[in-house]
Design a protein around this nucleic acid. Structure first.
Length: 199
DNA sequence: AAGTATACCAACCGCGAGCGC
DNA sequence: GGCGCTCGCGGTTGGTATACT
């Protein structure tokens, strides 16, 4: 690490850590309402919160932001997360972007606590049911798409997205989707300009 | 009832990218 | 071009709740 910029690390000993109180939430929400969700260091100072900017940002993004949905992830949402994860890998922010009101942190937690286990179980079951395949073929098929762009992470999302949606319809073949099951995906593209551009 | 293990999730940390000076 | 600051992301940790023995 060439530098340790102030503001990237909550290094002050006297800074508050741990769970947020209702009072802190209220102060933060008030200041963000006035000044907007930016310059978090200044927001923390203006709110009189003994917290680092980073902590304030996280709190706002995950809990205080308007239209945040908490808990009760529906089957539909779960299905979407599974599909998107298969497509995007651990790009939690991108996945969250497709689920209105959900945060990357929540999805990440949900994945780690629920879905990763579910998947492992499913894999176990399918391995027991399927005839043994050649190792190379299995790994080729199961290789997450995002792996290819994982190394050299600069502009990784952009590059990765481009590689996924450069018009190659084999993307869908890879997931062995029935046409009807792709309904959600077409809606996906229809509703987002950025993704449309990539497609 | 007490102790231990496991699950869940809020919060923190390290890092890289982008921007303005 | 280099530096400092800010933002955002993904991985990890730690506290709390719940289940199990």
């Amino acid at each position: 690490m060439p530098m340790a910029p102030t503001g990237t690390k909550c290094s002050k000993k006297e800074v508050n850590r741990g769970a947020w109180t209702a009072e802190e939430d209220q102060k933060l929400a008030q200041v963000v309402e006035i000044h907007g969700p930016k310059r978090w260091k200044a927001v923390a100072a203006k709110a009189g919160l003994n917290r680092c900017g980073k902590s304030c940002r996280l709190r706002w993004m995950n809990y205080l932001r308007p239209n945040i949905k908490r808990g009760n992830i529906s089957d539909q949402e779960e299905d979407l997360i599974l599909r998107l994860h298969k497509l995007l890998g651990n790009r939690w922010s991108l996945i969250a972007g497709r689920l209105p009101g959900r945060t990357d942190n929540e999805i990440k937690n949900y994945w780690n606590s629920h879905l990763s286990k579910k998947i492992k179980q499913n894999e176990k079951q399918t391995r027991m049911q399927e005839p043994v395949l050649e190792n190379s073929k299995v790994s080729e098929r199961e290789e997450p798409l995002h792996k290819a762009s994982e190394e050299g992470s600069s502009k990784r999302d952009e590059e990765y997205s481009t590689s996924c949606f450069n018009g190659d319809s084999s993307l869908f073949d890879l997931y062995n989707e029935e046409p009807l099951e792709l309904e959600w995906m077409s809606h996906f593209f229809e509703t987002d300009e950025i993704w449309l551009n990539l497609a």
